[in-house]
Nucleic acid binder design. Structure first.
Lengths: 158, 158
DNA sequence: TATATTTATGTAGTCAACTACATATTATGG
DNA sequence: CCATAATATGTAGTTGACTACATAAATATA
């Protein structure tokens, strides 16, 4: 069956992007399951951030990984349940929740890092000799500074 | 605030893809709202398919746009509620639901097409002189034929 | 200093994709 | 020709992102 979306030209652009990223995230989840690792996709973002910065608040994490704060809360709560992070309210500011890795997290990190590094190598090998990462940077720049909606409205005016 | 994900190299690849496609789809939804059009992102796939093929079943649509059939059912049901499609069970095969556009859909299509064309032009203008579409084709080819999971497992073995 | 604003976190509800399962119908094959 | 397999559709539940709203605490301002 031929792929109708691929024949849509640039109109299929967003659908194809979504299909690709959904497929990869789904595959990531299966990877952890298959390796019997008690982690989920995206946790590596928080693991690596906290490895680098010791303690961070919810908003600091959200800003750094450019996600909305409820998304961060969801990740962080699951990581807490899994025993990888602790949190306590800041002494200076009772609103803030200071989040850091547990001993269990530090103990497991080397094993996790092996998988993340393998994942990275796999991607590198898949896209070597292409400008894929530059293209993503370009797309981020272009569409975050002026979104799809605004661009379309401009075209409609002309 | 610098973007931690962008400094992750290829490891941030999937997150960045998802961020991008989510942002664009979200923007698409806002576009229709702002133009006061009673349609949603992705409906254009079904509109265009049915414009070309007259009538199709759920599975035919799913195969053509490479989505799981429950996703198609969700889109089709909403389009039905909005009055853009009709469906009746096939005479040859009582399992099949033959879906086609209503008069309302045909009446509105020219207006919708204007917006879709503007959207396409906007994207074309944004990515002109880049090989973005070729890159997406490449990524689809590479990751659908051997997924992220499999690639990572291979790297782990070495 | 008292009020208003901003900030940090949390909750609820939306959205679109998915898988897994359920049901009905058709096709197949012993 | 009946039992089994395959196919078409539909439902339920999961996922991970989002916005909008709620609440509490800190900061700014009049």
């Amino acid at each position: 069956m031929e792929d109708f979306v691929r024949n849509l030209g640039c109109l299929g652009f967003t659908v194809r992007l979504k299909r690709l990223s959904d497929a990869m995230i789904h595959d990531g989840r299966k990877l952890y399951k298959e390796l019997d690792l008690d982690i989920e996709p995206n946790w590596y973002l928080v693991f690596r951030l906290l490895k680098k910065h010791e303690t961070l608040t919810v908003m600091e994490i959200a800003d750094k990984i450019k996600m909305a704060h409820p998304s961060v809360i969801a990740i962080v709560n699951k990581m807490f349940k899994a025993g990888y992070i602790t949190s306590e309210t800041s002494k200076n500011d009772n609103r803030k929740r200071e989040i850091s890795l547990t001993d269990k997290a530090h103990k497991m990190l080397p094993e996790f890092e092996k998988v993340w590094e393998a994942g990275e190598k796999g991607v590198i090998r898949a896209i070597e000799n292409t400008n894929t990462m530059e293209m993503i940077s370009f797309l981020e720049k272009v569409f975050f500074e002026k979104g799809f909606k605004e661009r379309t409205l401009e075209e409609l005016k002309t």
